[in-house]
Simulated scan of single mutants.
Amino acid sequence: MMKDMGSSCLEDLCSHINAKISSVKNCIQLRDIGEDESRKPVLRKIQNEVYLIHDLLNKMEMIVKQQEKRKDLLKEIQKTAERDQKEAQHLLDHIPLYLPKPTKSCVTVPTGKQEGQNKAVEPKCAKKPAKGTVVIKEVALITTEEFESVPAYMKGRITYDQINAVVQQINKAVEGKYKILYQPLKSMSAPVRNLYHRFIEEETKDTKGVFFIVEADIKEFTQLKLDKRFHSILSILRHCQRVRELRGSGLIRYIIC
């Protein structure tokens, strides 16, 4: 056994020495070739090619490192996007019931040209109405932040939903009134014409260019009870700058802000 191990080590050593000798012989041969004038141009060309390959390898190494950095960055972005998606889905699945539903800030209605018909000044709106239509301004719903900012003595037991329910009814009354105002007289029935004339009589120089309603309009177009709670909600709407009051000739005009 010991002889076999000694023999194996000696053979490996001989192979190693022979390999070194072979490498030395190759180096001597290459040195001799390098001294050959006829082969120097080829060797220089090979040397230049080696330099070019070396530069190319360095550039490739830099590109690979940049790609690795981008890959790591993309992984981080992917993790962030997945986290944001989960949070967004959670918010979508748990939308609070007390948030207001989307509502229009204005309504467009067709109108006809006619003599003697007063016409309110068209308020500014985000989108230009189509030709032959008039924009009717509406009260925007109260937000949860605005509701929280209302003083406790003013809110009492009034809830957020009750306020926005009144807002929707006020908008219904505004729309009902101004649809009649912008309707041609010849197309009106007798009761509607009476309403039209009342609307005209209630206008003053201070109401020019604004939209407003009175309590009679609320009774006419809605089922709201004009009780203490209703007037408390109106106070909240004034506080939130949704409406303002204009008094005169025994009437309280609620102007849409």
Rank of each mutant, 00 (worst) to 15 (best):
I63Q: 07
T222A: 06
E175D: 06
E82T: 15
F212A: 05
I142Q: 03
A190T: 12
K155A: 14
K86E: 09
I77L: 15
I46W: 13
K75P: 00
K45G: 09
I33T: 13
R229C: 11
Y98I: 13
I28M: 02
T80S: 15
E68G: 13
I170A: 06
Q117H: 04
V134W: 04
G250I: 00
A216M: 08
F221K: 12
I170G: 07
D161I: 09
D55T: 10
R39K: 13
A216E: 15
F147Y: 14
Q117N: 09
D32H: 11
I46F: 07
I233L: 00
L52G: 05
D84F: 04
L43R: 14
D161L: 08
L246S: 05
S8H: 11
K225N: 07
E37D: 05
E220G: 04
L99R: 05
R242D: 00
D84M: 02
K119G: 02
R31F: 07
N48G: 03
R157I: 06
K128T: 14
K69Q: 13
L30K: 14
V135F: 10
K131I: 04
Q117E: 06
H90M: 06
R31V: 03
A173W: 08
D55H: 14
L141V: 09
A140W: 00
H94E: 03
G176A: 11
Y196C: 09
T111G: 08
K25A: 04
Y51M: 03
I163D: 01
P100F: 05
N58F: 02
V134P: 00
T204N: 01
R247N: 04
D227K: 10
L195V: 03
I252R: 06
D72I: 14
L57R: 10
V150K: 04
V42T: 07
R70F: 11
M1A: 13
L92T: 12
E220A: 09
K131A: 02
K25I: 00
I252K: 07
K137A: 02
A152T: 14
T222H: 05
K101E: 13
D206M: 15
M154A: 11
N171S: 06
Q89L: 09
V24K: 01
G209M: 11
G6A: 15
K75Q: 15
P129K: 04
R44P: 00
L226P: 10
